[in-house]
Amino acid sequence: MFGDMMNMMGKLKETQQKVEDTKKRLDTVLIDESSNDKKLKITLTANRTIKTIEIDDELLEDKEQLEDYLILTLNKAIEKATKVNEAELAAVAKEGMPSIPGMDFFK
Rank of each mutant, 00 (worst) to 15 (best):
L30G: 00
Q17G: 09
K51V: 14
N36L: 07
G10I: 01
L72R: 12
I42H: 04
I53Y: 02
I31H: 07
T49F: 05
D57K: 15
I31K: 07
F105G: 05
M8R: 13
A81G: 04
K83S: 07
L60I: 14
M103S: 01
R48N: 06
L66Y: 08
L30W: 00
I50N: 07
A81C: 04
Y69D: 04
M1K: 10
I78K: 14
D37P: 08
N7V: 07
E86H: 10
R48M: 09
I42V: 15
K39W: 03
P98L: 06
I42N: 06
S35L: 04
R48H: 02
Q16C: 03
V29K: 00
L74W: 13
R48Y: 00
G102L: 03
R48T: 03
K39A: 04
I55W: 05
K107P: 06
I53K: 03
F2T: 10
R48E: 06
D57T: 15
D68Y: 04
D27M: 07
T52E: 09
D56E: 15
A91K: 15
D62Q: 14
N85E: 06
L44N: 06
L40M: 13
D37L: 00
F2M: 12
M97W: 01
A46F: 00
G102S: 00
K13T: 13
L74F: 14
E58W: 14
A90C: 07
K76Q: 15
G102Q: 01
K38Q: 13
M97N: 05
E58Q: 15
T82W: 00
T22F: 00
V92Y: 03
F106P: 02
N47I: 00
D56A: 15
E67S: 08
L26W: 02
D4M: 08
L72Q: 12
A90Q: 10
D68T: 14
V29D: 05
T28E: 11
K94T: 04
F105C: 04
